[in-house]
Write a protein that binds this DNA or RNA. Structure first.
Lengths: 398, 398
DNA sequence: AGAAGGATTTAGATCGATCTAATTTTCCGT
DNA sequence: ACGGAAAATTAGATCGATCTAAATCCTTCT
C-alpha cells in the first residue's frame, strides 16, 4: 500500500489515491467526436450537442440529419467530457462492507435494478470491514466524480471518519447499518418489528417464559432487536426472560450460551436468537441435551439464511428482502441527488415472518423436494415506512 | 425503457443511452482545483500537476509546499478531468449475466480484490441474461470511458452482437462462458478436467458402468464436461455408458432422467451429473426407487453449491473457486489494457474435487456441526493453465 | 417593404486536468 | 565571472463535451 518510488517521500494529503506508470495507449482509431458529426451533417457542434440532449429547439429536419451522421460515423457519446462541463456524472458509488454473502449480492441486485432503469451506473467496492480500505475507496469514488454513494459502513465506522472522507457534502445513503452521529439518509431492515413479530408468534403459541440469546456487543442492530423483543413481552405483561450474551455472534457462541442456560434451573420454554447462525448453535446444544427443538423448546432466528430451510427441524425466522432494501436505497439516493437540500430521511423496510418447525407451530412436515417450503407472513403494511430525521436520532441510540 | 418525450421520435444511433432532465445542482462550495493549489503554493498549475503524478522533476522543497497546500485546501483529485486529457480512466466495467448466486458474488469479490490493489474501480451491471440489456450496458460502459470490460456473456450471446456493441477494439475479457467466434481473452473453470477428476474417482472406486445425466442443449459447457467424462473412460478402456439428456438442467429434469434410466434393464452403478442441482433430482429418484445414493449407486455433481454439503448424503462434487476465476480475469484484463496488441490468451482455472458420501467413498459421516465437512483434492498443478489462441478455437467447438 | 418576435443556429468560453515545448534557474568547471 | 548543460518551472494548447449570449433565419403583421 505504501510503495513509494523516487527519492522524496511525499505526504499527499488528497493526491490521487495512487499513481501508476500509466499505460500510455496510442490512439489508433481517433474516436469520433461531436466535431466530426457536426462537419458530416453540416451544422455546428452546438447543434449536435442539442440533438444529443433531445432539446426541442432543433428543427426536426436537422435533427434527422444529425442522427444520420451519428449512425454513419458510429459515434459513441463521451460522458466524461460531458460531465466535466455539466457537473453530474450519472454515476454512483456502492461501498459494501463485504460482498460474498447472499444478503449483499441481493442488495446489490436491488441497487442495480433501479440504476439500470434510471440509466445510472454504479461503481462497486468491497471494504472487507476494514476502515482504512473504506476511507480509501470513499475518496477514490469522489475522485471519479460520483454523484452520490450508497454505503454499508464497515464495522466500527465512526461519524468523524465519514466526515473526514468528505462524505459530508456528497449525497450519501447509509444502508443496513447506521452510524451514530452521522445525520444521513438511511435504509434498512426493521429488526425491531421483526423481533416483535417472532416474539408475538411465540406468545401466540402459548409461551410465557421466553429467553433471548445473543449479543453483548453494543451495536445498533442488537439494541434494535432487543427493543422489539421487549416490546412484545411488555405488551403481554410477561417477564423479560433471561437475556444471554454471546461474545461473538456465531454458531459456537450460540451453542455455549444455550448449554449454560439449560444447565441452570427453570430454563425458558422458548428462545429468540440474535440470528439464524446463533440459532443453529442453540439447537445443537438443545439436541445434545436430549431436547428436541420445536417439540420441547421453541427456537426462532433472524435472517432466513439458506441453511434455515434445509436444517431439520426447519428454522422459524424472519427476514427483510435485501433486494427491496437495495432498491429503496438506490431510489432514496437518486431523490437526494435530485434535491440535496431536503432533510435526511430514513426508510425502514418491513420484515416477513417465515414459520417452519423449530417454533413448534404446524410448519410443513417434509420439504426436501421443494426448496425449504414455508408459510410466509408479511408484517404490517406492505409499503416501507419513512420517518423524519428526529426519529433517526431517537432510535439510533435506543 | 422507451419513454420518449418531446415531439419528434429520434433515432439515436449512438446517442447517450438515455437523457434525463438532469439534476442541475448549484455549485455551492466551489470545488478546489489545481489552480487554487497553485495560487496557494505560489507555483504554476503545471508544477502542481507534476507533484500529483509524483514526477521526479520537481524539487523536494516545492513538492512539500504543494503537498501542504493540498492538505490545507482539502483538495480532491478530479479524475474525470484528468481522464479527458490523458485517455485512460483507471476504470473497468463488470458486466454479469446475473449477480445473486454465490458464484457470481465470489467472482465479483475476486475482481474487486485485484482492482483495489491496482487502484482501479469497477462499474457493476447485471444483464439478467437479457441480450438487449447487455447491449445497452455495454454501450453505457463505453460512454463512461472504461478502459476495459470483464464480461460474463448472457446466454445466446453471439459474436456479432459483441462486435456491434463496439466491444471489438475495447479491451475485453470473457469469463466463465465462451462466445464462439469472438476471439477475445477468456478465463474460466476447467470443466473438462473436473469431469475427468470425478470420473476417475468413480473408476478408482471400482465402477465400470458409469452414466452421464444431463444435457442436450448444444452449449459449450456441456461439450466440455462430456469431453472430460469421455476422456477418463477412454483412458481406462471402459464403455462410454449411457448419456441421458435433460431438456432443462434442473432438479426435476434430473429426477425424470434418472427415473427413466432405472426403469430400463442393467442400469449403471455410478452416475455423473451435469451439475449439483441435477444430481439432487437424480438422488431423489433413486431414493424413491429404494436405492440409497452412495451405497447402492454412486452419484457425483459439479459446482459444490451450498446445499451439496448439507444434503444427506453429502454430494461428492467438484468446483473451481469463483473468486480465483475473478482474480485471474481482472489480472488478465489489466495486462490487456497495458498492452492491447498482445495475442488473445485463455486461462483455465483447475478444479478441486470434494469427496462426500454420495460417491460411496469414506467421506466424513456426520457433518452437521461443521459446515459441510469434506476432503478436498486439488487437480493438477496449483497454477492456472494458459493456452495460446489456437487452443481457444479448438476447444470451443469440441 | 420593414419591423417585431419567435424559432433555430452558432461562436467562443468553459469545466479541470495533462502535455508539449519552451523558459528560467541552478550548478559546474574553467 | 561566464558559457553551457542539467534541473526545475511554466505558458498555453488540448481533451470533448456543455453553456451562454448573440447571431441568423423565418413568419407574421402593419
Amino acid at each position: 500500500m505504501d510503495v513509494r518510488k523516487g527519492k522524496g517521500a511525499s505526504a499527499p494529503g488528497r493526491a490521487p489515491t495512487e499513481t501508476a506508470p500509466g499505460g500510455a495507449a496510442l490512439p489508433l482509431a481517433h474516436r469520433v467526436t461531436l466535431n466530426d458529426i457536426a462537419a458530416h451533417a453540416g451544422v455546428s457542434r452546438a447543434t449536435v450537442s442539442l440533438v444529443l440532449r433531445k432539446s426541442p429547439l432543433v428543427k426536426e429536419d436537422t435533427r434527422q440529419r444529425v442522427d444520420r451522421a451519428m449512425t454513419d460515423l458510429g459515434y459513441v457519446y463521451n460522458r466524461r467530457a460531458a460531465n466535466l462541463r455539466s457537473g453530474a456524472s450519472r454515476t454512483i458509488g456502492l461501498v459494501l462492507c463485504e460482498i460474498i454473502t447472499p444478503n449483499y449480492s441481493q442488495f446489490t441486485a436491488g441497487i442495480d435494478d433501479v440504476l439500470d432503469a434510471e440509466s445510472y451506473v454504479g461503481f462497486i467496492t468491497n471494504t472487507a470491514e476494514d476502515a482504512t480500505r473504506q476511507k480509501r475507496v470513499l475518496v477514490r469514488m469522489q475522485e471519479h466524480g460520483v454523484d452520490g454513494i450508497v454505503l454499508v459502513p464497515a464495522e466500527e465506522t465512526r461519524a468523524d471518519a465519514l466526515e473526514e472522507a468528505h462524505c459530508a457534502g456528497l449525497p450519501c445513503v447509509l444502508a443496513q447499518r447506521r452510524v451514530e452521529g452521522f445525520a444521513a439518509d438511511y435504509v434498512g431492515p426493521d429488526y425491531a418489528a421483526g423481533m416483535e413479530l417472532v416474539t408475538e408468534h411465540l406468545i401466540g403459541l402459548g409461551h410465557r417464559h421466553i429467553g433471548f440469546i445473543g449479543g453483548v456487543r453494543r451495536i445498533a442492530p442488537l439494541s434494535e432487536r432487543l427493543a422489539g423483543f421487549r416490546r412484545a413481552l411488555r405488551r403481554h405483561k410477561l417477564k423479560i426472560g433471561p437475556i444471554v450474551p454471546c461474545p461473538v455472534l456465531d454458531r459456537s457462541s450460540g451453542y455455549a450460551a444455550a448449554r449454560d442456560l439449560f444447565a441452570e434451573e427453570n430454563p425458558p420454554t422458548a428462545l429468540v436468537c440474535y440470528n439464524d447462525i446463533v440459532a443453529f448453535g442453540v439447537m445443537l446444544a438443545l439436541t445434545e441435551r436430549g431436547l428436541e427443538p420445536g417439540r420441547d423448546v421453541a427456537v426462532v432466528g433472524c435472517d432466513d439464511v439458506a441453511e434455515a430451510g434445509l436444517h431439520r427441524p426447519g428454522l422459524t425466522t424472519f427476514t427483510t428482502d435485501p433486494r427491496v432494501v437495495g432498491r429503496e436505497a438506490a431510489r432514496l439516493l437518486l431523490r437526494r441527488i435530485e434535491n440535496p437540500s431536503r432533510p435526511p430521511e430514513q426508510i425502514i423496510v418491513p420484515p416477513r415472518l417465515i414459520i417452519r418447525q423449530s417454533c413448534g407451530a404446524a410448519g410443513p412436515g417434509r420439504a426436501l423436494a421443494q426448496k425449504g417450503g414455508h408459510a410466509a407472513i408479511a408484517a404490517k403494511a406492505p409499503k416501507a415506512r419513512r420517518s423524519s430525521p428526529h426519529t433517526l436520532k431517537g432510535s439510533a441510540g435506543t
